[in-house]
Amino acid sequence: MENKKLTMLTRLLDQTGSPRKTFETCMQKVIGSIKSIRAYYSGRNINSSDVDLALMMVVDGCFILEFINNLSSDDNNEFSNNRLRSTNIALDLVLLENQIPYFVLLDIYNYLTVDRNLQRPALNTMLKFLLDHINPFEEPLKDDDQNVRGTILSDHFHILGILHRFYQPINFKLPAIKTPPTAHSVVELIKVGVKIMADKDLAWPLAMKFDNTLRMPVVRIDNFFEVVLRNLIAYEQYSPVENYVTSYAMAMDMLVATPADIAKLGKLGVIVSHLGSDEKVAHMINNICKNVNLQDFYYMEPWKKIAQYHTKHSPRQFRVFKRT
């Protein structure tokens, strides 16, 4: 994509009417923040000079801005017309190792739109369109979330961090984990009378609740799903953020023991699979949290209720009841 980046950079700069001056000013702005940029990558061995690092930031930043503008545009272009290509690039933009500081994007964008009078939608709007493009859940991301807006205005986050905040539970008190939650598969739960259904009216995008019926969000399982979740989980493991995405992946791992569980979830409308076989989906879900530590679990309350229901309605208990 390096040649494509330069093409997109030139295309964006040409729209300002004075590409050389615009480029030089963007470089100056980024070089002025170079200490903050290096601090952002603390722990990673970056041998580039200040000028080379600033050039990388400007080229990548302008490419991202031009790409997401084309993606959200109603005009026909090479990205809006080719969903597979645009989705693959969008996925690259949420890889943990590809993140650049959000404040770099914002500085360049503000200069282009305010000082150079480049007519563009708000950066928040274009970013949400990008993230909607790769959101694996059926329910669209809600842009009225104050926590997300607060994150977008923060200097400490990036595109992956913004996507992470869209999945955050609102006004949720995390229950303490005293003992690990009991795992019961979908097939086991259905045998004891638990109903499972897709629910679009959830308190937060990843919510699961139980009232004799386990209500879950609808998720599309494909190769993109794995990329998005793995990077969000890696972000949670290595950043000072809460691990609600890890909790969701762990919960799905507990519910899926065999391909038969995937088949049930597919018939119930909870999973929309594009992988071709239930075996592939089960393998993906069972391996997505391999070697990941479960420090917090956002589903302790419904999982406790499920365990109690399972114990009360298990075949063994029913046999004891009949004998009594």
Rank of each mutant, 00 (worst) to 15 (best):
Y235N: 01
I262K: 11
L268M: 13
V256E: 09
E236L: 00
G266Q: 15
L268D: 13
M252T: 01
Y235E: 05
N243T: 11
L255E: 10
Y235K: 03
V241M: 02
N231D: 12
T258V: 04
L229T: 03
A234V: 02
N231I: 03
Q237F: 00
L255T: 04
V228A: 03
R230P: 01
V245G: 01
A260S: 15
P240T: 11
V228T: 06
A251D: 05
L255A: 05
I233E: 09
L265G: 07
A257R: 14
L268I: 10
I271G: 07
Y248P: 00
Q237S: 11
V270S: 08
G269H: 14
A260L: 14
A260N: 14
R230H: 05
E242V: 09
V245I: 12
A257H: 14
I262V: 14
L232C: 10
A257L: 11
T258K: 15
L232S: 05
A257I: 02
L255R: 01
N231L: 05
Y248G: 00
P240F: 01
A234S: 12
A251H: 13
P259R: 13
I271W: 12
K264V: 08
T246Y: 00
V256R: 05
T246S: 14
K267C: 08
E242T: 13
V228L: 01
G269Q: 13
A260C: 07
A234H: 06
Y235L: 10
L232Q: 10
P259E: 05
M250C: 05
S247K: 10
A249R: 03
N231P: 07
T246D: 04
L229S: 03
V241D: 09
L265Y: 10
D253I: 00
V241N: 04
A260Y: 08
V245M: 06
R230M: 09
M254R: 14
L265F: 05
M254L: 09
A257E: 15
Y244D: 08
I262F: 07
M252H: 08
V256Y: 04
